[in-house]
Amino acid sequence: MATKAEIIAKAKAAILDFDEEAAEEVANESLKAGIDPAELIQDGFTAAMTEVGDQFEAGTLFLPHVIAASEAMSAGVKVLTPALEKMGSESQNRGTVLICTIEGDIHTIGKDIVATMLKIAGFKVVDLGRDIAIKDIVSKTSEVKPNVVATSALMTTTMVNQMQVEEQLKEAGLRAGVKTMVGGAPVTQDWANKIGADIYAENAADAVTKLKALF
């Protein structure tokens, strides 16, 4: 039987090869060998995703690779999830981030990358999806009680809705309990200042750095 180090190395390789089946296989093998699923995720899958993320930032890997690697990781994690839940073990949690693409906007790629990178960095991410009504952001904030409410706007016509997030969170009395983060192609630090958002993230790496500094 393979040693723990070998299995973890295999898990890394599966992600770096963008291989969903290999990720599932190694997850099963790891369960049989009695390895702590959280450890396999942390030292195997997540470590490999971090490498992919670094290479994406460096411009040696691109969006297709990041998505394929993250799909492979999801496939592996799915196999491990029942065991993880049974053990009641949670991997490290830096804080909870509620994230979505703003009302009126259906672009998801940028938001998805940010969500993936935040997960890798140890945040619990609640991804509401795209074109999310402001009132739903507010009600989810009240329900989930996240540390951060992050919205992405990819169009000049929808970024105005980020202003609404600020206003409606205030009206609901929730604004003081969260940090708001804004991002997306047309969004700038100026815009964040103007609408009163706490954090502007230029890209996924920037989002991770800024949230890590806070939590």
């Binding site: 963008f18 969006l63 297709p64 690779h65 998505i67 394929a68 799909e71």
Partner: peptide, 10 residues
């Protein structure tokens, strides 16, 4: 759809 970016690779 969104899978497009992965499909060009896989």
């Amino acid at each position: 759809g969104d899978d497009w970016f992965m499909n060009i690779f896989t």
